[in-house]
Design a protein around this nucleic acid. Sequence first.
DNA 1: AAGAGTTACTCAAACGTTTTCGTGTTAGTA
DNA 2: TACTAACACGAAAACGTTTGAGTAACTCTT
Lengths: 339, 339
Amino acid sequence: MKTRITLKKIANEFGVSISTVSKALKGSHEIGEELRGKIQAFANYYNYKPNNLALQLRSQKTSVIGVVIPEIVHHFFSTVIDGIEHYANNKGYNVMVCVSNESYEKEVLNFNVLANGSVDGLIVSLARGTQESRKYDHIKGLVKDEFPFVMFDRVVDEIECDKVIIDDMGGACKATEHLIETGSKRIALLSTKDFVSVGLLRKEGYIKALYQAGYTVEDDLIYKIDDSKNLYDQIKKVFESPIMPDAILAVNEVYAANALIIAKEKGYSVPEDIAIIGFTSGLISEFTSPPLTSVRQHGFLMGEQAAELLINRIEQKEPQGFKTEIISTSLKIRKSTKS
Amino acid sequence: MKTRITLKKIANEFGVSISTVSKALKGSHEIGEELRGKIQAFANYYNYKPNNLALQLRSQKTSVIGVVIPEIVHHFFSTVIDGIEHYANNKGYNVMVCVSNESYEKEVLNFNVLANGSVDGLIVSLARGTQESRKYDHIKGLVKDEFPFVMFDRVVDEIECDKVIIDDMGGACKATEHLIETGSKRIALLSTKDFVSVGLLRKEGYIKALYQAGYTVEDDLIYKIDDSKNLYDQIKKVFESPIMPDAILAVNEVYAANALIIAKEKGYSVPEDIAIIGFTSGLISEFTSPPLTSVRQHGFLMGEQAAELLINRIEQKEPQGFKTEIISTSLKIRKSTKS
DNA sequence: AAGAGTTACTCAAACGTTTTCGTGTTAGTA
DNA sequence: TACTAACACGAAAACGTTTGAGTAACTCTT
């Protein structure tokens, strides 16, 4: 690659000092009109653009915000990024995305790369590996130094920082209530392992709704799916229990869609024999047959809120207290539940 | 935010020079054992990490690669990013993602931010707005300066650089052939406006297969969908033509899934009355009913290849010629086509 | 004609590193 | 004793930029 043109080279070309060139390019009246014009024309011809690294080093500001997420091929997370991008760009920031791949080690690595001058702040959703191991020192170090830091979706109580969360409990509760209202008596829950914070919260919402309706919570009806194993086989077990459930609440779209497929394979009709609701942020639910009633998560809004919190934190003059924003869900009723 | 500790501060603390501290932290034997140990302990205690911007400015290398894509909430593009991330991380690079939102102006803006020292190279898929306007000066400038630059998927012939493309023509051709082999006589094509390069290529593949089979190409069977308008209404027209087609090839997953929904609404059975194939990289096709036969695009591989080309270009000693890698598709046969 | 003001520049520090070269002190050798 | 080598550290340049302070050479005023 040809080396880019710098102030120094232009200065040499004209036999003037670097500061003269800098000022000339900024249109300063300190520099004579003739020279100023010549320098500008020259710089323009050679397509001069100030080097970002130098600017950032000098100003101690990168105008970049870092995002660390567990996965990127995931409708919810990519929607959140979109929201972050949207808000950040409007405020003059760029976004640097890193993927932890659900691994604690990779997450720590990403932190080290990003939080050493490369970005002005960090927006993070925890890797499964991190939640599982409960090792948060890499985060606590940043928070202690008051590094601008926002967590979203997969957060953890013991870290004090700005947070944005989905109202997982409320969403699951509303969904469960809807199933109860439409006549379901035995509602199965397709959840994740308990260390995934959102899985746990959704389970609590499910339980809350059952309690409020006077239903008993049966552990047999709660299935903890392991994402690293075959989904189909695990979900099939729901349909092999001695007393079949008449409804399923799934904590994500793919679980719900799989449940729907299996139900139909087994000859059950949806929603008559079994109703299904999934949490979702993607498109799958719209195109299944019947389309799935689902708890919508509004990832874009979440991303915007996270970016807003972070940029406020970055640009704050006075220290401010930490906020937790809660994004409420909405229940999109389609055809996989009775009316 | 508390200011991070620097070499200078440590140097002051010990009353030594900055270079001494730098050497001590690197474990140099130039520095006496005792002092070296003390400095290391001190730095460690205050969690010293060298400032990336300073390192990058000095070494003239960022180890970051920039990616500019039209959308991020898009299964194909996020899969490509995943592939880029994967390869780049293995080679010690990080990834900075920017979204052009299909807009030419935003794309140019992203280029200006990224290609001024912030990244060592750029991987780009063109915005629709850019393809439509045919304004490529922002790219040509970079290429002229031999800035490491790779295009993928939405490329353009007149720019000479490394490229990675899907075998769109081959994929569409294979899909069309499959429809012909399974008895379809009137095959409709759901394509995009012609300025989208991949839409055009897929149309050519479709036409090629028809020619080879001795079919005539009927313009009435080619529908150019406008993404900015209502998809459902546009696709419905396919089913309102005087002579109904008996098969549909859609250039993406969402068109195909919509076609399937509409076909069923109109009382046609799939694949008996009408067979459907879509291009895809997402999950929708798996969960429709019947699941959609589709042309798989292998975005992850594409991302890996793009990253490989770029990093080779960045690290090249001798100038090399430009390469174009072609990622072949595979036809995943499901239930929306006859056997 | 001397002081003040303007014009058109240059200097140098600062951001945080790394690294080459230089230098003063001490110890060892002939 | 005088020369050399080893040791332990410092000085300064370099990456590219911005910016406040400094300085010549003018011009104007009275």
